[in-house]
């Protein structure tokens, strides 16, 4: 466990040290970005609209009973921006993209393709890890931004259409604009950047350390997804505590 964390931190450090070489890997970064966007955009849209909607659905009637329904826009807005957008998108990406990364690199390790790279004096971290980590660190905050916006709209749709809530689109949005500040959105985007690094490094690390054939690849994929999600949820708490310093 601790050895794994140590190895992952070392991989992260080696990737950061290779950042000046990022331009030479731009083609692979764009390919990965396309892959991530293509695989996740529709799912992100569906997930976010329903998350925004369900928060409004759960909290709206309770707030109405207490005469607080006017703050619904702010409540959904803050929840999506600071917590649910970044965490839910990261969990989605860990499952959808992290697993694909671990499987692809794991299969390369199992079938000696990574050994072949080494014999050509090609650094596997620069060739495989750098473009993937970079792409996910660019794509995830963008997806989270998209998710926050779609989640807000999902909440607005449910608030205005559900008779037990009955908050107009305008008053929902007005309250959201009053309550949610730019720094709340930035807070969520910062979290998503950290989570992206976690997914990228954990998945690539599991892939690179794959041993055995198809079973080994399967194990690496499972570990990549499970470890990424566990780390995201643990880090979420500590990041939230850390970011609360800037809220005061």
């Amino acid at each position: 466990m601790f050895q794994n964390i140590g190895e992952m931190l070392r991989l992260l450090w080696r990737t950061i040290k290779l950042l000046p070489d990022a331009w030479s890997q731009r083609r692979k970064v764009f390919e990965q970005l396309f892959e991530i966007g293509n695989a996740s955009l529709l799912m992100a849209c569906i997930l976010s609209i329903f998350i925004g909607g369900v928060i409004a659905l759960q909290t709206g009637p309770v707030l109405r009973e207490r005469g607080l329904v006017a703050v619904l826009g702010g409540l959904v807005g803050l929840s999506m921006a600071k917590e649910l957008g970044p965490v839910m998108m990261s969990v989605l990406i860990a499952g959808r993209i992290g697993s694909a990364m671990a499987a692809e690199i794991g299969s390369m390790a199992a079938y000696q393709e990574i050994d072949a790279l080494r014999t050509m004096n090609i650094n596997p971290v620069r060739f495989l890890v750098l473009p993937r980590v970079l792409a996910i660190c660019i794509a995830l905050p963008m997806l989270v931004m998209f998710s926050i916006l779609v989640g807000w709209i999902g909440g607005a749709m449910v608030s205005s259409m559900n008779h037990d809530i009955s908050v107009s689109f305008e008053s929902y949005m007005n309250n959201l604009r009053q309550v949610v500040e730019l720094r709340d959105v930035m807070n969520g985007l910062f979290k998503s950047l950290v989570f992206a690094g976690v997914i990228g490094v954990v998945s690539c690390h599991q892939g690179l350390n794959t041993i055995g054939g198809p079973r080994g690849i399967g194990r690496s994929v499972t570990k990549a997804v499970v470890n990424s999600i566990v780390l995201i949820l643990i880090l979420d708490y500590f990041l939230t505590r850390f970011l609360m310093i800037f809220d005061k």
Binding site: E104, Q112, E113, A116, N121
Partner: peptide, 19 residues
């Protein structure tokens, strides 16, 4: 050593990059 001398290896499986 790997900068100075050039090595080539043909793997049993070929180990071509499938992608």
């Amino acid at each position: 050593v790997f900068e100075k001398y050039r090595f080539g290896m043909v793997f049993q499986s070929g180990a071509l990059l499938n992608s």
